[in-house]
Amino acid sequence: MNLDVFFFYAFTSLALGGGLLAITRRSAVHAAIALMVSLLGVAGLYLLLQAEFLFVSQIIVYIGGILLLFLFVIMLVNLDAGKGLRQFHKNWPLGAAVTALAGIALAVLLSRAQLPPPQQMPATGNVELVADTLFQDYLVPFEVASLLLLVAVVGSVLLARKRA
C-alpha cells in the first residue's frame, strides 16, 4: 500500500470519526475536543491535496481561533447544567431520515459524475500561487471579507456585552 493512500484513509477517519463524535457527545467540552480532532483530519487532507497554505491556516484559524472561542463560551455559560437534559430533539428520526434521503440522492448523483481529466498545478510554490490569485483576481472580495470581519467583531462585542 502506497503511503498516500494510507494517509488519506488515516486523515479521513480522523475527520469523519471526530465529526461523528462531535455531534454525539453529551458534554460540550468533549464535543469540542472531538471537533478539534476532526478539523485536524481536514487539515491533513489539505496537506495531501498540496494546499500547504490552507493546512497552516486551518490549524491556526480553526483550532487556534474558533475552537478556542467555543471553549471560552462553553466555560462562560456553564453548559454542564444542561447535561442531564435530553440531548436530541424529539423529532430527531425525521431529521436523520431526511438527511439520509438527501445523502443517498447526492451519492447517486456523484457516482454518475464524469470529471474532466485532471490538470497539473503550476510549478510555483503553493503560497505564491494563492497569494497571486488572492491579491490579483480576488482583491475586492478580499477587502470585503475584511469589512465583514470588522462588522462581525463589532457585532459580537455589541451582542455579548452586559447591558449597562
Partner: peptide, 30 residues
C-alpha cells in the same frame, strides 16, 4: 482546485474560513 490545477478554489476556501470565523463570533455572541 487541485483537479483543475488552479488556486481559485483555495482562495474560496480562505473566504469560507473568514465567513466561518465571522459566523462563529456572531453566533456565540448571540
Amino acid at each position: 482546485s487541485k483537479h483543475h490545477g488552479n488556486a481559485a478554489g483555495q482562495v474560496f476556501a480562505i473566504f469560507v474560513i473568514a465567513v466561518a470565523v465571522a459566523e462563529a463570533a456572531v453566533g456565540l455572541g448571540i
